[in-house]
Write a protein that binds this DNA or RNA. Structure first.
Lengths: 213, 213
DNA sequence: CCTTCTATGGAACATAGTATTCCATAGAAG
DNA sequence: CTTCTATGGAATACTATGTTCCATAGAAGG
């Protein structure tokens, strides 16, 4: 008989109740499904309720806002992304990690295009960055030529840009090719610059462009 | 007497009427001001009307939605950004162009932090990318090792990441330092990869990390 | 000046989406 | 079989967007 403080019991659902678990899973599934067709700001809570076949009022017993559910879904996706790549990152095999990552997002291109572009990208970026920082273990070296955190920021940013570009191609490059681009053009320069100031590499000069004023 | 089709005249204001010009400028000024304190989705049209001292209904005679004004303001800022940097880009002096760019955004850090982060960043990115593509004159070379468009995407993306990071520091690096990072870690690798496939640069190996399962 | 045109501001109104309250029901658990 | 509580639905409130109508004031031309 746990009726002692029944007042607050009505506000949020118990996370372990099988009914609540079902509702939650249905909400997550619905959000992922809807994200395949549009950006989160174009999705209403009523859409989610309808798609999940969960009552509109029930939604608020699980998440206070639309953003809360969206962030939870993104967190799950990021977690499973790290699950698949962390072992290889820890083994210093960046190339394999990148390949696994590109293969993973290609399993649901429409979902990931939504997450990687538009307003959703800032949430994804934030969570990816948090995870990447934890992995990199940003030790502060403010005296380094390039602050180490910048490396993480540039790698995560470059990854997002490259993924979004790649998924949107009509004839996407093979995974090995795009992985090569990522490792050589994004990761390697950032790592190299973190470890030691690069020589003053000259940019290739071409003939100046004449442009109308 | 141009009263022939007076019916449609009520919908939108004439762009050349001095009163309309004043209203428009007030709206742009207000939007820029408000963007210094919050993201566009946190700004209501009533906020803009109040800040600009333009009537709420009048707003809609100039822009159909909040996004339309926001995009127009971003377009203006991007245009003035290109004005200040294009000459140096055309002269192949990327370093000076970057310096001018970093100096420009530092004139109003709060505005640019808003534009470079959160949901606003996707609009900024889109417009910057459009401009950069026009400058780069993306000639399609689908057989190149790295498609040229990827270079533009990575450079613009890296620029946005780096600017956002830089502006948010409590003690920002000097402009010359951050410019160096941009040119050497972002621009040079992208240009080099576009011109010729880079050698299979080895990533520096470190001792593998032990992590709890 | 005087007249005409039209941008403006405000009131009233319609709509959509979020969020809460109350209640009856049905499923979970002992 | 009984108790607890998650659910779904109706009613309600609120906020923001967007439109319509009208009176006013500023611009422009004679």
């Amino acid at each position: 008989m746990m009726l002692w403080f029944a007042a607050m019991q009505d506000r949020f659902a118990n996370a372990n109740d099988p009914r609540a678990v079902r509702s939650r899973e249905a909400l997550h599934r619905a959000m992922r499904k809807l994200l395949e067709s549009r950006q989160p700001e174009q999705i209403t809570i009523r859409d989610i309720a309808a798609e999940s076949e969960v009552g509109y009022t029930t939604y608020f017993r699980h998440y206070p806002t639309k953003e809360a559910l969206f962030e939870a879904v993104v967190a799950e996706l990021i977690a499973s992304l790290f699950e698949r790549t962390l072992p290889m990152v820890d083994a210093q095999d960046i190339s394999s990690a990148a390949k696994a990552l590109f293969a993973y997002v290609r399993e649901n291109p429409r979902l990931w295009i939504t997450l990687l572009t538009g307003g959703a990208a800032s949430t994804l970026r934030e969570q990816l960055l948090r995870g990447a920082r934890a992995v990199a273990g940003t030790r502060s070296q403010p005296d380094a030529w390039m602050p180490p955190d910048v490396g993480v920021v540039l790698i995560v940013g470059g990854l997002i840009e490259l993924l979004a570009w790649w998924l949107q191609q009509k004839n996407p490059l093979p995974i090995d090719r795009v992985t090569d681009i990522f490792v050589r053009v994004v990761v390697a320069p950032a790592i190299a610059a973190r470890d030691a100031p690069p020589a003053a590499a000259e940019l290739p000069k071409r003939k100046p462009v004449r442009r109308k004023a």
